[in-house]
Computed example of a mutant assay.
Amino acid sequence: MALFEAHQLHKRFGDQVVLESITLSFEEKQLTGIMGPNGAGKTTCFNVLTGRYTPDRGSVRFAGEDITGLSPRQIARRGLSRSFQIMNLFDDETTLDNVLIALPAVREQGMSMWRDLGRFSRGRELAMAVLDRVGLAAKAGAMAGALSYGERRALEIGVALATDPRLLFLDEPTAGLGAEGTARVAELIAQLKRELTIVIIEHDMRFLFGLADKINVIHWGQVIAEGTPAQLRDNPWVQRSNLGTLS
C-alpha cells in the first residue's frame, strides 16, 4: 500500500472545473514530482492533498487513514508538512525562532510558550538540529528577513521539517533562485529523500528530473502521464515541451 493515495479527486470553483478525476499515489521513501504548465491545476491539487481545500468528490488517504476534509492542522498532526510557493516566514524573528515556533510543543502551547522561547532549552536543541540539517546553523541568530533568498528557501524547508513529518510536500522550492541557489536546494533535497517521503511541484524540469523517482504530469486538471524520468523523456507531451532532450 502506498503511504499516500488520492482517488478520483474533483474540484471546481463556480463554473470552472480545476481538477477532474485526479488519482495519485506516493510510495514511502520516494520522491515524487508533479509537473505541468501554468494553469494546469497543480497548486489546486496540492492544496486539496494537504487540506487547504476540500475536494467536491473523491478521497485522500494517508498511512491508511481517510483524511478527506480534515483541516491542514489536523493533517499536520498526522505527519504531513508542506512549504509554500510564496514564502511564509516571520521576517522580524531570528532564523532559530522561526524553526522554534514551528515545533509541535510550541504550537500546542500557543502564544504563552512563544513568549518563553528563550527558556525552552530542549526546543532550542531540536531547532538547532533542524538548522544544521538545512545548512543554516551558522545563521541561527540572524533575522529571517536579512537572509539571502536561497537561505530563506532553505529556512522554509527547515520550518516544514520542524514538525518531524513523515511526508513532506514542497511547492516550487527553486522559485526565484539562480543556478547556485538551485544547486544548493537540490543537494539539500537529495539528502532529505534518504529519510523522508517527498512530493514536489516544480517548474524547473531539469531539477525535478534529476531528483524524482516518479513524476506525474498534470494538464487540464487531469493526470495525463506518469512514470520515471526516463519514461517521461519519451512521452509526447514532454517532448513537445522541449523536455525530451534532458540528459
Results as ranks from 00 to 15, higher is better:
1 M>D: 14
2 A>R: 04
4 F>Y: 15
7 H>V: 15
9 L>S: 12
9 L>R: 13
10 H>Q: 14
11 K>I: 06
11 K>T: 03
14 G>H: 11
14 G>Q: 11
15 D>I: 12
16 Q>T: 13
18 V>R: 08
20 E>T: 14
20 E>L: 02
20 E>M: 06
23 T>Y: 10
25 S>P: 15
25 S>C: 15
26 F>Y: 05
27 E>H: 14
33 G>W: 14
33 G>N: 06
36 G>H: 04
40 A>W: 10
41 G>R: 07
41 G>Y: 02
41 G>Q: 06
42 K>I: 02
42 K>V: 01
44 T>A: 01
46 F>P: 00
46 F>D: 02
48 V>M: 06
50 T>Y: 04
52 R>E: 15
53 Y>P: 01
54 T>N: 10
54 T>E: 09
56 D>L: 05
56 D>R: 06
61 R>I: 10
62 F>C: 04
63 A>V: 03
67 I>S: 05
68 T>D: 02
68 T>W: 07
71 S>K: 03
72 P>I: 13
73 R>C: 11
77 R>D: 10
82 R>L: 00
83 S>H: 12
84 F>V: 04
85 Q>T: 05
86 I>D: 09
86 I>T: 12
87 M>W: 08
89 L>V: 03
92 D>V: 06
92 D>T: 11
96 L>P: 00
96 L>H: 01
97 D>V: 03
98 N>W: 10
99 V>N: 00
99 V>P: 08
104 P>V: 01
105 A>G: 07
112 S>H: 11
113 M>Y: 15
113 M>H: 13
114 W>Y: 15
115 R>C: 08
117 L>S: 00
118 G>E: 09
120 F>S: 14
121 S>V: 07
123 G>P: 11
125 E>K: 14
126 L>A: 15
127 A>R: 11
127 A>Q: 07
131 L>M: 06
136 L>Y: 04
137 A>N: 10
137 A>M: 10
138 A>L: 10
139 K>S: 10
140 A>N: 00
141 G>R: 07
142 A>E: 09
144 A>C: 08
144 A>F: 02
148 S>H: 02
149 Y>K: 06
149 Y>W: 05
154 A>S: 07
155 L>R: 01
156 E>P: 00
159 V>D: 11
159 V>N: 11
159 V>P: 07
160 A>N: 03
161 L>S: 03
164 D>Q: 09
166 R>D: 03
169 F>G: 08
170 L>G: 02
172 E>Y: 04
173 P>L: 04
173 P>C: 04
175 A>K: 03
175 A>P: 12
179 A>W: 12
181 G>S: 05
184 R>Y: 11
185 V>W: 02
187 E>A: 12
188 L>K: 14
188 L>W: 12
190 A>I: 07
192 L>A: 02
193 K>I: 03
196 L>M: 02
198 I>P: 15
200 I>M: 04
200 I>S: 08
200 I>N: 08
204 D>M: 01
206 R>N: 08
207 F>E: 07
207 F>K: 14
208 L>S: 04
209 F>Q: 10
209 F>G: 08
210 G>A: 15
211 L>Y: 00
212 A>T: 01
212 A>K: 05
212 A>N: 05
215 I>N: 01
217 V>P: 14
219 H>P: 13
223 V>E: 00
224 I>F: 07
230 A>Q: 13
230 A>P: 00
232 L>K: 09
237 W>Y: 15
238 V>S: 09
240 R>D: 15
242 N>A: 11
242 N>G: 14
242 N>Y: 13
243 L>N: 12
245 T>N: 13
